[in-house]
Design a protein around this nucleic acid. Structure first.
Lengths: 376, 376
DNA sequence: TTGTAAGCGTTATCAC
DNA sequence: GTGATAACGCTTACAA
């Protein structure tokens, strides 16, 4: 087993509440001497400096660093020594300017607050790193305008390629990407005739599979806690999956009670409470993701309801939380890591011009745990 | 209440297991037409193009974008129209090269796998964004060499300033930072006479406070699950805090059983199992962070031990998990958001040259939940 | 208020 | 294999 570790960095934008006036008091400033960082004006070594020190031209130094094969062993050694001695580091900006290439890939995800995208992104990152690329991530809290802004920001920063989540977004954005010629790949969802190549899974089919299972356990009163559907094809797909399963079982899906809310434990709890007011009371609450589901289970306990005896709960994503919750959460297991890994390879191929981008659908599985019971 | 959202992006490096040979099969490629992204060779507009279009010089365009006040309203309008019309975006690399400034701040944190740093980092990010800075984050999985590598990478990328976690690191690294004149700030820990200014809390005192509380409930057989102490001043500080509390209560801290392990739910579980073999069996297991503690509680359930009746458990950090766990986890509540917010302000001041960096210690509190009981 | 022009540190195309 | 040298797109004195 490999010892994996993540290393990543993000650039970010937050439409934050203006905390300008927040005066924080009550803290003591300990008796620590003020560590003064003399911003040493010492000039940084440049390619020129290295070239001088090694008695070669800048071109040769550049080659040593970028295509060592094209340089004689002797020269290379001389140069590398000079590099060491001077502590030279190439200037990223200059490099980007001259080569018009950054070896940077940008990923724009909805959120970093919960672990939904963490695992997949880590795998993505590992895949990129293995090929010498660096990842830049931005998130947008499910706000389309911000997503657009972030996409522009990453492109401006010189991203060679972009990873996006889901298909639904303004046409402008797609046109912008085309115009700039920035290769982009969509993950976490597939659909027919996508605007961009996609690697992911079928959210509707996945949830439909889970709903089938739920129905097969005898449940007939389903309640749903869905993520916000507007502009989110994963959320709407999942909801559609439940409806489809009901129809397939000859049930009236139009009567399905749905609580739509932003992802978040608290929101899941609140939505669950509302659903429990219904008569007949749902025997199972299917949630749009694990975070909502955990909130629902918390609320159930709060209300003195036993899961799964009094009410069953299901999630989606199979993040760590699903395993830790009590009881364990029955959920849809998404191939996070494989999705990330394959997305990395695919996107790099696109950036390299090796491929125009193949779409790929990955299979999902249902992970059964204690939160879903049979109707007696 | 402001509607906060995060947006961030990360650059990353992972020393990943080589998955090169991994051949993944069994996936179907759906009937989706290959979305061919014509990498439109359309050239991007430059400052020159805008200048031409607006019939002004490049200098004026640059000023419009950077110091609009220094340009007449009329010209500005003309220029902005041209910018819009052409869809111009400044080239980040060129800008960094010319101005030697990126308005980018780097943060190097130990991990993104769990939520320990997420909240603080988000606040940090918001603070930066409010002042026009962008965040770049890297993580290193608690490996000092990688931290050093990441620091260099972020500096190479032109970070104007750096946020680091904890104080302990090789002298080289500090010298490197000084040499490059990159302002840096340490968060999550304070210590006397720090090498760099720091904003954080006293890990030892915090844990000592919790241990005091534990002892006051009658516990005398404490077991500890600590994070890896080597090179981690937070982990070692916390452990020292427990020892200090014991001494203060006249107990023999040298007899304290300590399981040292990397952070992780599984690891916490395993360590807990080992502690439960001891005789006398600990009546309380104090953990270095919430993740370990949740693992410990899972294992307790696995072993049929009731928390807190059979054994108590405590954590540190007060992340969301601590609230979701059953029973709720008694833990040390860290001022994540305030730390992040203040760090942002402080670091920006340092970057701007307004301040040499003031160290600041923030207070922590104990959050009491069900996992810690009284000894009967 | 605006324009001119000299860099900024690389890469890449040529010759040699 | 190696060395000149011309871009790359922007900022910023300095001049006008």
């Amino acid at each position: 087993m490999g010892f994996t570790h993540i290393v990543s960095a993000y650039i970010g934008i937050a439409q934050s509440p203006n905390h300008a006036g927040a005066v924080c008091t009550g803290h003591r400033t300990k008796g620590m001497e003020r560590a003064v960082t003399s911003p040493s004006p010492e000039k940084l070594p440049t390619l020129d400096d290295v070239a001088d020190a090694a008695k070669v031209s800048t071109a040769t130094v550049s080659r040593c660093l970028n295509e060592p094969a094209k340089v004689s062993e002797k020269t290379r050694e001389k140069v590398m020594q000079a590099v060491e001695a001077l502590g030279y580091t190439p200037h990223f900006g200059a490099r980007a300017l001259a080569a018009n290439r950054t070896f940077t890939i940008g990923a724009i995800i909805p959120t970093m607050e919960n672990a939904i995208f963490a695992r997949g992104l880590q795998a993505f990152q590992e895949g990129l790193h293995a090929q010498g690329y660096t990842l830049l991530v931005a998130s947008h809290a499910y706000q389309p305008e911000i997503e657009a802004e972030q996409i522009r920001a990453l492109v401006a920063r010189g991203a060679d390629g972009l990873l996006l989540i889901g298909h639904r977004r303004e046409d402008d954005v797609y046109r912008f990407l085309e115009r700039r010629g920035v290769p982009a790949l969509i993950a976490w969802a597939v659909q027919d005739a996508p605007r961009l190549p996609a690697i992911g899974f079928d959210n509707k089919a996945a949830m439909q599979g889970l709903a089938d299972h739920v129905l097969s356990l005898g449940h007939r009163n389903i309640g749903v806690i869905s993520g916000l559907v507007a502009g989110n094809d994963r959320a709407s797909g999942r909801l559609a999956g439940i409806r489809a399963a009901m129809e397939a079982h000859g049930l009236d899906q139009t009567a399905l009670p749905v609580e739509e809310t932003a992802y978040g434990v608290e929101n899941g709890a609140a939505a669950f409470a509302r659903l429990m007011q219904l008569r007949p009371r749902p025997s199972v609450v299917m949630c749009g993701n694990d975070v909502l589901a955990v909130g629902a289970m918390q609320q159930a306990r709060e209300m003195g309801l036993l899961v799964p005896d009094d009410v069953s709960v299901t999630g989606f994503d199979n993040i760590e939380l699903a395993r830790i919750a009590t009881p364990g959460l029955t959920t849809v297991d998404v191939p996070h890591r494989e999705m990330g890994r394959r997305a990395a390879d695919a996107l790099i191929a696109m950036v390299a011009g090796t491929s125009a981008g193949e779409s790929l659908e990955l299979p999902v599985e249902i992970t059964k745990r204690g939160s879903l019971g049979r109707v007696v």
